Simulated assay, not measured.
Amino acid sequence: MTVDHPADLTIVTLVPLLLDTNGDAANARVLAQRARWAGLSARIVPVHSVADLPAVVDLVVIGSGTDTSLTAARDALSALADALRGWLGGGVPILAVGTGWELLSAGLDLADGSSLAGLGLVPGRAGLLPDRVADDLVVDAAGQRLSGFENHRRGYSGATASLGVVSYGTGNGDGTEGVRHGSFIGTHLHGPVLARNPHLADLLLDLACTARGLTPAGSTQTASVDGIAKAARNQVAVRLGLTAE
């Protein structure tokens, strides 16, 4: 176990050497920077094995990987299954993107017709779509827009609740996108998703701060960045024939 240093929030990124194909491990950097703008101290701890785990974990980020590294990534996450189970049961906010999410499900189908067992920690499984999807993805998440890009061969079924309804794109393949399971969010959105949708980052931060009894402060820097992100989402929406926010 690593030696800890005091910080308001500790953000763990799991197996980033294997699960960062689309830069999704950078979601941890978004969380840390927004925490700092809110007057809190934050640190990011890359975790590749149990030995890397800090004593306190406030937020968890899992990125996406390639199919060629699926077995290695699954085995690395399996070694951390007890920690993941504890975080899920304890309400620690977890964001998992792409294959990082799929590997926590019951399993995922592969292009060669075989399947790979997942960790079975979140409801559902990832099944093959008719074709690979690589396009913009826009989602209505309880009245708030999420925007990014998707690049995946598998959809998702069996989630107890989705992240939102697809306005443009494919997502899970059934008109919904992602999964919500307690404090866990799984999504196909890349970008990284939290840089393009900082309101989702703030949702995760608020959950973590509430658990720790912390009160984030307002920030002009945050407001400025939020405006830039909103303008970028609107530019995509207009290009796709959707209304602006």
Rank of each mutant, 00 (worst) to 15 (best):
residue 152 H to N: 06
residue 159 A to Y: 10
residue 203 L to P: 01
residue 113 G to E: 08
residue 196 R to A: 15
residue 205 L to E: 05
residue 176 T to M: 14
residue 79 A to Y: 11
residue 137 L to V: 07
residue 190 H to G: 06
residue 94 I to S: 12
residue 168 Y to R: 14
residue 173 G to F: 03
residue 121 L to M: 06
residue 138 V to M: 13
residue 181 H to Y: 14
residue 101 W to D: 08
residue 204 L to A: 07
residue 137 L to Y: 01
residue 185 I to Y: 05
residue 78 S to D: 14
residue 141 A to Q: 07
residue 169 G to N: 03
residue 118 G to H: 09
residue 124 G to M: 08
residue 185 I to W: 04
residue 104 L to T: 02
residue 210 T to M: 15
residue 95 L to A: 08
residue 129 L to A: 06
residue 110 L to V: 08
residue 77 L to H: 04
residue 102 E to N: 11
residue 78 S to Y: 13
residue 89 G to F: 12
residue 80 L to P: 11
residue 84 L to A: 13
residue 107 G to I: 14
residue 83 A to E: 12
residue 131 D to S: 08
residue 105 S to P: 09
residue 168 Y to E: 14
residue 161 A to Q: 13
residue 186 G to I: 12
residue 79 A to R: 13
residue 159 A to D: 05
residue 119 L to C: 04
residue 84 L to K: 10
residue 153 R to I: 09
residue 102 E to P: 00
residue 171 G to K: 13
residue 92 V to W: 11
residue 121 L to E: 07
residue 114 S to L: 02
residue 134 A to C: 11
residue 184 F to M: 08
residue 132 R to L: 05
residue 155 G to Q: 01
residue 114 S to A: 11
residue 128 L to H: 01
residue 139 V to Q: 12
residue 211 A to R: 15
residue 126 A to T: 04
residue 129 L to P: 01
residue 151 N to V: 12
residue 147 S to A: 14
residue 103 L to Q: 04
residue 155 G to W: 03
residue 180 R to T: 15
residue 98 G to E: 02
residue 77 L to C: 08
residue 122 V to Y: 03
residue 121 L to H: 06
residue 108 L to R: 14
residue 171 G to V: 01
residue 194 L to I: 01
residue 82 D to E: 09
residue 161 A to E: 12
residue 138 V to I: 11
residue 129 L to H: 04
residue 172 N to M: 03
residue 185 I to S: 02
residue 134 A to G: 02
residue 129 L to T: 00
residue 210 T to E: 12
residue 83 A to R: 14
residue 205 L to Y: 10
residue 173 G to M: 08
residue 148 G to A: 09
residue 111 A to T: 08
residue 208 A to W: 03
residue 199 H to N: 06
residue 171 G to W: 05
residue 147 S to W: 10
